[in-house]
């Protein structure tokens, strides 16, 4: 079973966003970067599927700056066999469609049975790179998967939809985007971290043309109007309900 997993280096979810001097991206000063949380589920599933099949390779691919080698080493330490960095200084500013092109160009021609993504990268929150890469490669894609079975050349997946789980079937090769709940990602062990240092991490230059989506400006959301403390305890409730009804008009 040959598996490719796409991973992204992103700011930690606790980052306090400060807009950079270009007014188009965040100021990275003091920001902690790590592996996108949803990609941890993707990596875990890639490793599980390789092991369940009794062999094969897991290759991690990232389109990013030179710094993204750190996240790729993390994935190697978790148990992936090889890693590929598509290096570009422009990568963090690229939109989903442009990113998908870069990834699809690098994956095209490589053999894989399963192609994993996170359902979302928690920086630009696009939810789109996985399905877009799969489409460019002409393979089916099941997104936001919480349960996965692979048997007899076929994938059966459960995905969360509003109010139910949808059951989806597709033939291999197939792409899957991982939602929380799919598995419990493993931590890299000390042994894994040592082993990762000897695993292959290829770096190739990736050039992308003009991005397909152009950021005109980045700004802070408008501040919320100052709130009202209605009062304390159940005695405050009638006043609250009056405010909801007559001031906010939401009842």
């Amino acid at each position: 079973m040959d598996v490719i997993v796409c991973v992204k280096r992103v700011p930690s979810t606790t980052t306090r966003v400060v807009i950079g001097g270009d007014r188009k991206s965040i100021d990275p000063t003091g920001v902690e970067f790590l592996l996108n949380p949803y990609d941890e589920f993707a990596v875990e599933e890639a490793l599980k599927q390789r092991d369940a099949a009794g062999g094969g390779t897991v290759t991690a691919v990232s389109f990013g700056t030179a710094e993204a080698q750190k996240e790729l080493r993390t994935v190697l330490a978790m148990g992936a066999d090889a890693a590929l960095l598509l290096q570009s200084a422009q990568a963090p500013l690229c939109d989903g469609a442009t990113t998908a092109r870069a990834l699809a160009d690098a994956i095209r021609g490589r053999k894989f049975d399963l192609l994993f993504f996170g359902k979302q990268a928690v920086d630009m929150d696009q939810h789109g790179v996985g399905p877009a890469v799969a489409t460019l490669l002409g393979v089916p894609c099941i997104s936001e998967v919480v349960h996965l079975e692979v048997k007899d050349g076929k994938v059966t997946a459960h995905r969360e939809v509003e109010g139910a789980h949808e059951i989806v079937e597709a033939p291999l090769p197939c792409a899957v985007t991982a939602q929380k709940g799919l598995n419990e990602p493993r931590y890299a062990t000390l042994k894994g971290i040592m082993a990762a240092k000897k695993k292959p991490l290829d770096v190739v230059d990736a050039s992308v043309g003009e991005p397909l989506v152009e950021i005109v400006e980045m700004k802070m959301p408008p501040p919320r109007a100052a709130g009202k403390m209605v009062g304390e305890g159940p005695e405050a409730v009638p006043a609250l309900v009056q405010l909801l009804k007559h001031e906010a008009k939401v009842l």
């Binding site: 989903g96 469609a97 929150d125 696009q126 399905p131 936001e144």
Partner: peptide
């Protein structure tokens, strides 16, 4: 911008050779 819409957005853009904007 629902789960199904998200599922389709990037694919339609890929098929039309264009960019996409979610949410």
């Amino acid at each position: 911008a629902t789960i199904r819409g998200r599922d389709l957005l990037g694919r339609i853009a890929a098929l039309l050779n264009t960019g996409f904007v979610p949410d």
